[in-house]
Design a protein around this nucleic acid. Structure first.
Length: 255
DNA sequence: ATGCCTGTCGTAGACAGA
């Protein structure tokens, strides 16, 4: 099973990029983040023509938004992360496909909205940890893919790319990510590429050419799926295309 | 340390992103 994740920074602007990626890589499932549109505005026909069913979770106002595209049967388990009733951000989708729970996430950035914006990020990470722990307690195979907005260690950003106060690298952010891993989830890219500088995001402007990037898109795997992990690769091509997203896709292969 | 980018909303410029 091949599963991919791609923060597209507007799904409507990135239909050609997504289409080319699907045709080249042919993932069984692709999780999208930052749709930047309402649910009913998410393109579907273009992806159906390529053999993919679409389930989008959008939001009014042009912010956030997640979706799954799949060429295999799937069932949507939930469209929001439990634990905060008033939370209307479109940041979570969970499906069951191929016998596993697969979650696509767009974790809050945490740099806007002052102290409350950052507190929301930390609460969201704890809610994700609880959701994952509940599934692991029931021995459900689980993969969480998406834009985590966390550089887990110093290896995961170009030196000097972010100030140490940035919400993507603060100690509390990294601790929350570690807490998530320590319930029994494996960082797929790091498991197979322990010492490499690997990035999934480059700011618009000269950052890509200078390879001044961040590794903030991740795939975390439960023990059953980690044992089946064959490859975990960043697909760099889409970032070099015309009018790209600032992120590029991550692809994992499970035996 | 950010907004020299980009997208959305809405039709100027604020806000968010990371």
């Amino acid at each position: 099973m091949r599963i991919a994740s791609f923060n597209v920074n507007s799904v409507r602007k990135r239909v050609p990029h997504i289409g080319r990626f699907l045709q080249k890589v042919q993932p069984d499932l692709l999780f999208l983040q930052e749709l930047k549109c309402k649910t009913e505005e998410c393109p579907t026909a273009e992806f159906r023509d390529l053999g993919y069913q679409v389930h989008a979770v959008g939001q009014p106002g042009g912010r956030n938004g997640v979706a799954v595209l799949s060429r295999i049967p799937f069932e949507v388990v939930c469209e929001a992360l439990e634990g905060e009733a008033a939370d209307d951000h479109a940041r979570y989708i969970e499906v069951v496909a191929g016998g596993a729970h697969l979650a696509g996430i767009y974790l809050p950035n945490g740099n806007s909205g002052g102290a409350e914006g950052y507190a929301y990020k930390l609460r969201w990470m704890e809610r994700l940890r609880r959701r994952a722990a509940g599934l692991l307690d029931r021995f459900q195979p689980l993969a969480i893919l998406g834009d985590f907005n966390v550089c887990p260690t110093a290896l995961d950003l170009a030196p000097g790319a972010l100030p140490p106060t940035d919400a993507l690298v603060r100690p509390k952010t990294r601790a929350a990510f570690q807490a998530l891993c320590h319930i029994g989830l494996t960082d797929a890219v790091r498991a197979l590429h322990p010492g490499n500088r690997i990035y999934t995001y480059w700011d618009y402007g000269p950052s890509f050419e200078a390879n001044r990037g961040l590794r903030i898109d991740h795939a975390l795997l439960s023990p059953e799926l980690a044992e089946r992990l064959v490859s975990a690769q960043v697909e760099i091509g889409p970032r070099a295309e015309e009018q790209p997203s600032d992120h590029t896709p991550l692809v994992i292969e499970l035996a």
